[in-house]
């Protein structure tokens, strides 16, 4: 199916001892339209090394990241129609994730792919768990109170 929700995440163990994590939740648009998000959002912050990327900064070897080769993984959740996929995205997108140190990513960035850093794998786990919990709740809500009224 052409319509789905993509959840991807990958992680590297950074040279400074922190986890760097990218996660994105987005709706794949039907064929012929550009998907609502593919690839990292450069506006949020300068990119650091990501999974699979070659270290570009050869000069400072001591700061090179230690790679833990997590393959980036993707979860596709099919919806019966583009409208329902759009609704799910609309329900999950507005809330900013709490950033490290309580710093929030501005909500208007959330509809595009998002990235954030977590100092501990635990924080990453909690975040993805909560994303999936909310996704499940959206789907249950659709099952009980759907289908969407035609517009």
């Amino acid at each position: 199916h052409d319509v789905g929700m993509v959840l991807g995440y990958g992680g590297v163990m950074g040279g400074e001892g922190g986890w760097e994590v990218g996660r994105w939740g987005s709706v794949c648009a039907p064929r012929g339209q550009s998907p609502l998000g593919a690839g990292p959002d450069h506006k949020l912050r300068p990119r650091r090394q990501h999974v699979g990327a070659e270290p570009s900064d050869g000069g400072s070897r001591s700061r090179l990241p230690l790679f833990l080769n997590f393959p980036p993984s993707t979860l596709r959740v099919p919806f019966p129609s583009p409208l329902e996929a759009q609704i799910a995205h609309g329900s999950l997108a507005p809330d900013p994730e709490p950033h490290k140190g309580g710093d929030h990513i501005p909500s208007h960035h959330i509809s595009s792919p998002r990235h954030w850093k977590a100092d501990e794998a635990r924080i990453l786990r909690v975040s993805i768990n909560s994303f999936l919990d909310h996704l499940a709740l959206v789907i249950q809500t659709m099952e009980m109170f759907g289908p969407p009224v035609p517009r």
């Binding site: 609704i87 809330d95 809500t141 109170f145 009224v149 517009r151």
Partner: peptide, 20 residues
Amino acid sequence: MGAPLVTVAVVARTLAQLWN
């Protein structure tokens, strides 16, 4: 509290969109 607020807001958003 953040987590309970989001839970209910997610349902509200889904309903508003489903029912237009």
